[in-house]
Design a protein around this nucleic acid. Structure first.
Length: 270
DNA sequence: TACATTTGACCATA
DNA sequence: TATGGTCAAATGTA
C-alpha cells in the first residue's frame, strides 16, 4: 500500500480532546495489565498441576481459558503501546483530523508497518505459550547479557513455507518476582497450524494476529510440557477430533453461562 | 524409529 | 573483527 500523506494533518503535540484521543499516555494502564499477566501466570502454575491429575476435558478447557486471559492482556498492551510509542501516532491526537481521516491513517504504511511490521516484541512470563507450534533451532550467548537467547521457527516452515520466527530471552532485571521474558516475533504465520494430530494441551497467549473466537482457540494449538517447556505432539487421531468437537460445545455452553453467579461452577455447566 | 533439542560451525552484517 | 542469526549433525526422548 502506498502512503498518501495528503490526509495527514500537522501533528499536534498536545491532546485537544482527551475523551476522543487515541494517543494519550497509557503507561499506567499498561503497567496494571502487565501485573494481571503475571498474576494469571502464577495462578495457572498453581491450578494446572491439579488438573493434570484429572485427565479429562476440564484440563484442556482451563488451559484454554488461561491462554485466552493472557491473549487478551497481551493484545490490550499491544494496542496501548501502539498508541503511545510511535512518533507519528500523535497525528491521531490532532483535533483537526476527523474520524474518516483517522481510519484512513490507520491503514497507511506508517501505521501498518509499525503495527504489523518487521518485528513485534512482547514481555511475558510464559514465552512458550502463544498458540503456535515452534521448533527451536538455535541458542546463543548474547553479549552483556547473562541469559542466552533462544531461536525458534515455525514447525511448518518446510511443509508450508511459513517464515515466522521468534526469539526468546529472559530479561535481565525483573520488577516483580515473576521471571519475565522478551519475545520477539519476526514475519507472520502463513501456515495452518491445525494440520497434523495435535491434541491441545493448549495454552494460547500473546498472539499478535490471533482472534478470540472459540474456533480460533481450537484451531491454534501448541502442545507444551508444563514441566520442561518442551513441545510435544500427542497422537490421538479420531479421538482428538471428537474431543475438539466436545470442547467447542463446552466453550459455547460456558459462553452462554450466567455471569452473575456468585460461584462459577464448571460442573454445573457440564 | 521419528521427531525435537542441543550445540558447534558457518555466514552476514555493521 | 565482533556479534547475532541460521544450519545441520549429534544427541535425547518417548
Amino acid at each position: 500500500m502506498k502512503l498518501h500523506t495528503r490526509y495527514l494533518p500537522q501533528a499536534s503535540s498536545t491532546c485537544a480532546d482527551e475523551s476522543e484521543c487515541f494517543a494519550c499516555d497509557h503507561q499506567p494502564a499498561i503497567n496494571e495489565i502487565e501485573k494481571v499477566q503475571a498474576l494469571v501466570a502464577q495462578l495457572r502454575a498453581i491450578i494446572l498441576p491439579e488438573y493434570e491429575m484429572i485427565p479429562d476435558l476440564r484440563l484442556e478447557l482451563v488451559s484454554q481459558l488461561f491462554g485466552s486471559l493472557q491473549d487478551c492482556a497481551s493484545k490490550a498492551i499491544l494496542e496501548l503501546q501502539l498508541l503511545t510509542t510511535h512518533p507519528n501516532m500523535n497525528v491521531l491526537c490532532s483535533n483537526s483530523i476527523n474520524k474518516r481521516e483517522r481510519i484512513y491513517f490507520m491503514h497507511t504504511n506508517i501505521y501498518q508497518s509499525w503495527r504489523y511490521g518487521e518485528s513485534t516484541s512482547y514481555m511475558t512470563p510464559v514465552p512458550h505459550y502463544d498458540g503456535h507450534q515452534w521448533r527451536k533451532y538455535g541458542q546463543k550467548n548474547i553479549t552483556n547479557s547473562k541469559h542466552q537467547r533462544s531461536y525458534y521457527r515455525c514447525t511448518y516452515k518446510h511443509e508450508q513455507n511459513c517464515m515466522a520466527t521468534k526469539t526468546v530471552q529472559q530479561q535481565e532485571h525483573n520488577t516483580t518476582e515473576t521471571v519475565m521474558y522478551t519475545v520477539v516475533y519476526y514475519a507472520h504465520h502463513t501456515c495452518k497450524a491445525n494440520t497434523g494430530p495435535a491434541l491441545p494441551h493448549v495454552i494460547e497467549t500473546s498472539t499478535p494476529q490471533s482472534a478470540m473466537s472459540p474456533d480460533r482457540i481450537i484451531a491454534s494449538q501448541e502442545t507444551v510440557s508444563p514441566h520442561t517447556g518442551s513441545h510435544k505432539i500427542l497422537e490421538n487421531g479420531h479421538a482428538t477430533q471428537q474431543l475438539t468437537e466436545d470442547m467447542q460445545v463446552l466453550l459455547k455452553k460456558i459462553a452462554c453461562a450466567p455471569l452473575d453467579s456468585d460461584i462459577w461452577e464448571m460442573d454445573a455447566i457440564l
